[in-house]
Amino acid sequence: MDERKVKNRNTEFSAKISSRFWQEVPNDDNPYIADNYRCQGYDLTQLAEKRSFTETLYLLFRGELPNQQQNEILQKLMIAFINPGPRHPASRAAMLAGVSKAAPSQLLPISLSILSGEHLGAGSLEKNVRFFRKNVAKDPKEIIADLHLQLSNPSPSNWEPIPGFGMRFGSIDQFSKKIAELLLPLPGAGRALKWGALLSEHLQEFNLGWLPTGVTAAVLSDLGFHPKAAVGIFQLISAPGLLAHGLEMSGKPLTTMPFLEDKDYRIEE
């Protein structure tokens, strides 16, 4: 076997990192120190003085400040889904990490990794936003007609037959429905949310409805977030709750959380 010769392709890489949204204004005396930061051209101290966190978040990803209606719906969405709750696997990951004394700095990376999943997690957001973008002009009945067979034969693994819409534990997710109803009358409610509400209505006969990842995707789609950005925004929205669950357990003894007895742990042949 011959030794293989390796030739450098001399690929051209950029000499500098670039950014289209963030500028750091250097100090005259020390070029490593920034005197100021600008987000999309706006002085960050001015933003801190005059604008809210959600407005600045929107600005960061969308390039312009949101109007009042857009800010209102984003803020309400962020409150509604601030915590996936203690039963959610991502929260439980945070709790397990906390109770087993993982470093507090790791609680978020650990739980957000679990929230990256495609089942009720950030992993589904890109697909969900693209679904709204693609279908929002269609009659929701068309979607249902196309999937009629699948919708009529539900099973525990067929939990999300339509991106962002499905069932949880055999039922419509009542909280997601409630949040969608809360957001719908707002002036900032857009086409995707309204279309999703119609679809959700038609899905009721199949015992299906909004999922949290569907409501989030609809609002973020209406606000113009890129589908890939929606993935991380969903994680960001849930992060405070995950951290709180992890921290709540981190000061408690290992025995605070269940450890199943051998009789409840069955090894299948």
Binding site: S19, V25, Y32, G41, Q46, L65
Partner: peptide, 22 residues
């Protein structure tokens, strides 16, 4: 790999004032 501020090639909007809130 420390970076000076000028090591980042800023390609975004020029400096602007935060508008008055509606």
């Amino acid at each position: 790999l420390p970076l000076r501020c000028s090591d980042i090639d800023y390609q975004g909007p020029p400096p602007r004032d935060v508008p008055v809130k509606e």
